[in-house]
Nucleic acid binder design. Structure first.
Lengths: 242, 242
DNA sequence: AAGTGGTCTAGACCACGTG
DNA sequence: ACGTGGTCTAGACCACTTC
């Protein structure tokens, strides 16, 4: 044998079970809010022991895909504000208060993917995308100016939605059956451009925190490209290293 | 009973085991690099089952306190550059290259804690502290200007150290027997002040990413207060949300 | 009382690294 | 061959929630 292939990797049973169960979330067999069958029922269903199912469920709960509550059951996680705030929103007031920001949509239009968005969303340049511009408020103050880019292929009926909700991840889930499971952010300090300065009511050139985000669905495919410009006077981005 | 106390909380055995074992790290009974006894030996030692010890060890490995390697054993984590880079250094080049930065110490002096440092380190204002100013380079370019504040009470012999190493967490561990287990960072976009501009070779007013860090020992006590100013031209701060 | 997840145990066997 | 951690199983019992 002259090929460089590795021997077929050993795959623990609980990982296979995990993949089977995640697949049920991806395929919408199990929808947000649903109570799962008990560990013993799943185990019997899959022909493995209850302990193996438990290990798979525990892993999924650690990824915030499931919520487990002793005495009640195991549930598919809902995209509620509280959880999204906890998982995907890291901006806090300097007194460490964390609130979900209000949102005011400025524009929503179809367009063609530019270089950065195309790369992040694995599209060809000029593929059709939705572009949403909005300003978000915290404590009555305009703090975030952001643009969201979405592939039209995955959000074809977005034009029929009248009012975009504050919590767009709930929209992705409830209307488009897409669950965001992970996001990668890249932060830079930049100077506010004219548009941002107008929207955030600050001087052009004022330092703003630029956050580029790619958000991924459960199957790992990139779903959302987001560019946020944040005022950090009275606010900060929290990062917990451990 | 008229008091508002909760009933004594139920404490799982594996958590008690975990605390016992973390205590051995805190007290220096188990030092970095040491190979731990096998799971069965620890279990016999503590009078619990091997599965319970396993759960405690797995939790500690998840916190990067231990390194487990199948076939070899379980080891107390070392403060090597690679791990510190992975765990505590989130700045990357825009091509996603991650390197440990070089450091050039500018000043090191004793002083009195100012307000922010005192609060973060739970000191009284005017308590004695060490202050280290340094500039850090990535790819040959001065990218980070930072000031580290340390309580003299915990680092009394710091004055005897000739050259501060690049990786100060290795110094804390090896010379002062303090292991950093967690850090909290607060990020803001600010304008470079005159001193920062000089050190980073940029214009005053240039946007810089300000990072305030408090680093904690294994027992949860705050150890280090750090203020970093980072150029983000060609670099960015990575954050993985999941 | 019944049903759920959470803990603890005991034992068998597998995969990996080293000698 | 041996010792380590990793997986898988089976069963008993505990804690919590609901009815």
């Amino acid at each position: 044998m002259t090929d460089g292939e590795k021997a077929p990797a050993f795959r623990p049973l609980y990982q296979q079970v995990r993949e089977t169960l995640v697949r049920r979330l991806i395929d919408g067999v199990w929808t947000p809010g649903l109570m799962l069958p008990s560990e013993f029922q799943i185990a019997a269903d899959l022909g493995v022991s209850q302990g193996t199912v438990r290990k798979a469920l525990d892993a999924m709960a650690a990824e915030h895909l499931l919520i487990r509550r002793q005495g009640r059951g195991t549930f598919v996680a809902l995209p509620e504000e509280g959880r999204i705030l906890f998982q995907f929103f890291r901006l806090a007031a300097d007194d460490d208060t964390r609130l979900f920001p209000d949102s005011q949509v400025l524009t929503r239009a179809r367009g063609r993917a530019d270089g950065a968005a195309a790369k992040a969303l694995q599209l060809d340049r000029n593929d059709a995308v939705w572009r949403i511009d909005r300003v978000r408020h915290l404590g009555g103050r305009a703090v975030i100016a952001e643009q969201i880019t979405l592939p039209v292929t995955k959000f074809s009926s977005l034009g029929e939605i009248r009012d975009l909700p504050n919590n767009v991840y709930a929209l992705y889930s409830e209307v488009f059956s897409i669950t965001i499971g992970r996001a990668l952010e890249r932060l830079k300090a930049t100077a506010a451009d004219a548009t941002t300065a107008t929207r955030l009511n600050c001087q052009p050139g004022h330092p703003v925190l630029s956050i580029e985000r790619v958000a991924f669905a459960l199957d790992g495919s990139p779903i959302e490209w987001r560019l946020s410009r944040c005022l950090t006077d009275g606010f900060h981005y929290q990062s917990d290293l451990r």
